[in-house]
Design a protein around this nucleic acid. Structure first.
Length: 307
DNA sequence: ATCCGGCCTG
DNA sequence: CAGGCGGGAT
């Protein structure tokens, strides 16, 4: 029995449950249909293959960094940053030895700065507990900060070629397009058995590259099928948002360590006014500083904020 | 405006 | 389960 036995039997069991509304649409998919689908994706994936730099390594660390960067950041931007990051922090131990501020600094421009903190924390754990290597297996990876189901499976598939259920937006797009064409809302719980059944025992890495490439292509030629995923949510506007101010405050403190709250408030208001927006209340700035401080980006000492 | 090879917290 | 979290490319 391979590691996906549970996913496979889940489907077998699910097919006897006629009360689920979508059984007729997807869970009743035959093994032959899955095999045909796999063949088509493999074929189209070969034509659409993207030779991305992080695909030319099996180093779990390098792949981990790429997977975290690719969490909600598009390939085109990661392409401009992955090698630079790898050069500056070439290994788990190098990342662990670095200062938090340097990791956050390197991350600037990637978005979702929390990922940099999680990366650094996970590196510390790996350095201390796993001798500077990443743990193996989805479970152990999943336990590290910043690594969820998708990233754990991605690292496992791409570095170890071990069968696993890797579900992210491109994979969702392909499976929804193929198996849930009429559905309005598809949950990962519904996708998981199918993704598990489709995953091969060998060349897992090639299989998921094909899925990613076909999914990315699908979104260019069709309305994004991932929009029908239950987890799909649209984000509120960035311009003028708290998130924008928060990112601005972090950059400001990184650039000019030791700033007082009042000084940050003054320059933030200047920036907001220059952008044609209202002043920011002291309460909002305090709240932002408290959040950034609590999350570990920086702290207050000697009258100023610094990383 | 849309959306990105998601994760974490309440 | 909902909401917060970046910022650039198209």
């Amino acid at each position: 029995m391979g590691p996906l036995a549970s996913a496979r039997s889940e489907v077998a069991a699910g097919s006897e449950n006629g009360s689920q509304p979508r059984e007729t649409e997807a869970a009743g998919v035959s093994d032959e249909a899955i095999a045909a689908f796999v063949g088509r994706v493999r074929e189209e994936g070969a034509r659409l293959y993207r030779d991305l730099p992080w695909r030319n390594t099996r180093d779990p660390y390098a792949i981990w960094i790429s997977e975290v960067m690719l969490q909600q950041t598009q390939v085109a931007r990661v392409l401009t940053r992955w090698e630079r990051f790898m050069k500056r922090f070439p290994s788990v131990d190098a990342l662990s030895a670095a200062a938090v501020a340097d990791v956050v600094d390197e991350w600037q421009g990637m978005g979702y700065n929390r990922r940099a903190l999680a990366l650094k924390r996970a590196a510390d754990i790996c350095s201390a507990e796993y001798g500077g290597a990443l743990p193996t297996g989805v479970e152990a990876l999943r336990a590290l900060p910043g690594i969820g189901d998708a990233t754990a499976a991605g690292i496992t598939a791409f570095s170890a070629d071990v069968p696993c259920v890797y579900i992210e937006t491109n994979v969702r797009a392909v499976f929804i397009h193929e198996f849930f064409p009429e559905a309005e809302r598809v949950t990962d719980k519904e996708l998981r058995p199918l993704v598990g059944r489709a995953c091969p025992d060998e060349d897992v890495r090639g299989w998921y590259y094909a899925l990613l490439d076909v999914g990315a292509h699908l979104k260019k030629t069709h309305a994004n099928p991932s929009r029908k995923a239950a987890v799909y949510t649209r984000q509120s506007a960035f311009e003028g948002s708290r998130r924008q101010k928060r990112a601005w405050v972090l950059r400001e403190v990184m650039a000019r360590p030791g700033l007082s709250t009042a000084e940050i408030h003054r320059s933030l208001n200047a920036a907001e006014l220059a952008a044609g927006r209202d002043r920011v209340s002291g309460e909002e700035l305090d709240s932002i500083l408290a959040a950034l401080s609590k999350e570990g980006f920086f702290s207050f000492a000697d009258g100023g904020w610094r990383a």
